[in-house]
Design a protein around this nucleic acid. Structure first.
Lengths: 243, 243
DNA sequence: GGCTCTTGTAACAGGGCGTAACAAACCTGT
DNA sequence: ACAGGTTTGTTACGCCCTGTTACAAGAGCC
């Protein structure tokens, strides 16, 4: 329903960067990650449609990670590796990978395989996808994920832009827990982390805009509170129902 | 878990024989086939869990067959081919294959990939097999592919032009999946990709026209949604029946 | 109070997108 | 072939979305 969200896992920053850029140009949301810890953080923050997992992650072992992920969740995984021996491939498949690609690879072929895996996942689990929570209520507000609509406590319908909706969803998925700027930025596929860095106040501006639409008094936010030096929190609990 | 039923398609009797024997030794129920006709016969007779499809079938073309099968039914397909060029692989994936294996292959690896594909298909507890679709219903609308007719939720017949029908069909074939401008343009044989590029806003206009006919409120589309910077999605699921 | 670092926000700019209007191409029946 | 209607691509204009920048306000610390 939205743009596919890919998790690119590679400990080589250069490869990660290259892949991220290429995939973004082809219409995907890309969340870069370098370790199993990164993966889990992202999986908690937001929905992931597919993981592109490098096998050699420094001291971590991609195959093991794949096994663990597969045991816990049903997320499609494509393994990427410099090892092209049949035994390595078999290890990948045995660990539950949906596909196994040897480096160096043709980027267009990679794209084709990603699409194949995504298409298969979506074709078969469109029901499961729809079973995701569809309707959130918090502090009198109602957010309908199906129609991307927000209704204020006094019944007015409020128009949110796509970006604002995406941001709201990140918070709704993590009520009451403070999210760092980096986490939010990653979940939104925003490049620059703001704050300390010189560049990229996009997140602050975005939060501001959302506040003007859903805060009773944007000057004194009650819902989207600032955690100084850290990030933001959705300061109320959220009730979610299926559609 | 029941014994998987595989369809082995190869026009070379020797290869077919070898594969059949090997797979049977590994606990599969194998049905040999040599042509598209054979495939269809078997698909009608009984349940098939996976098709192992050779690309070169004498005068028949495996890729085309794969495309047709995929359009009609939701059966996992692994393509097998002596052609190992990236472009060949891509053609396979584009035709909807779940995996692509180049000959000669390691039989154990083949087994691993078969298991991987079967595992995923089983995990996603395949819905009913889809037959050739003649009639689509979505959000109350009915599209009859045979008569190129569209009927609105309140029973009125709506006249769509050729181009509009073609566009609608592209979306109906990919419900809930965001399609890039390029993909849609390619499917419609539209030359210029629009948006950032200088030329060719034909797609936007076409989408707009379809929206005026199909959307309750064209200003705020609920069916044909825009994915900014990417393309469009049909935002509702589609139920399709054979005529 | 000063100093510094962080956050809020107004203004701006670039680009994507919707759409009205126009013109060319395409039908269709005569 | 011709006339009238329909369909389809192009163009132009303007709105809206979104990231950037610059500056103001605030928070914390000494």
């Amino acid at each position: 329903m939205t743009i596919p969200r890919l998790l690119v896992v590679d400990d080589d920053a250069e490869v990660r960067q290259m892949l991220t850029q290429f995939l973004r140009q082809n219409g995907a949301h890309v969340l870069p990650a370098a370790s199993e810890h990164d993966i889990r953080r992202h999986m908690e923050t937001g929905r992931i449609d597919l993981i592109l997992l490098d096998v050699m992650l420094g001291d971590e072992n991609g195959v093991k990670i794949c096994e663990r992920l597969r045991a816990e969740q049903d997320v499609p995984i494509i393994m990427v590796s410099a090892l092209s021996a049949d035994s390595d491939r078999m290890a990948g498949y045995a660990a539950g990978a949906d596909d196994y690609i040897a480096k160096p690879f043709n980027t267009d072929l990679l794209l084709a395989r990603i699409k194949a895996v995504l298409a298969r996942a979506r074709r078969s689990s469109s029901l499961a996808h729809r079973r995701r929570k569809q309707r959130f209520t918090f502090a009198g507000w109602v957010f309908d994920a199906k129609r991307d609509e927000v209704i204020s406590p006094d019944g007015y319908q409020v128009a949110l832009s796509r970006r604002e909706i995406a941001l709201l969803q990140v918070f709704l998925a993590n009520p009451l827990i403070p999210l760092t700027r980096a986490e939010i930025a990653a979940a939104l596929d925003l490049d620059g982390d703001g704050g300390a860095d010189g560049q990229g106040r996009a997140l602050d501006v975005l939060v501001g805009r959302l506040r003007t639409k859903i805060e009773a008094d944007p000057k004194r936010p009650n819902l989207l509170r600032t955690e100084r030096g850290v990030g933001y929190v959705l300061a109320v609990d959220v009730r979610s129902e299926d559609a």
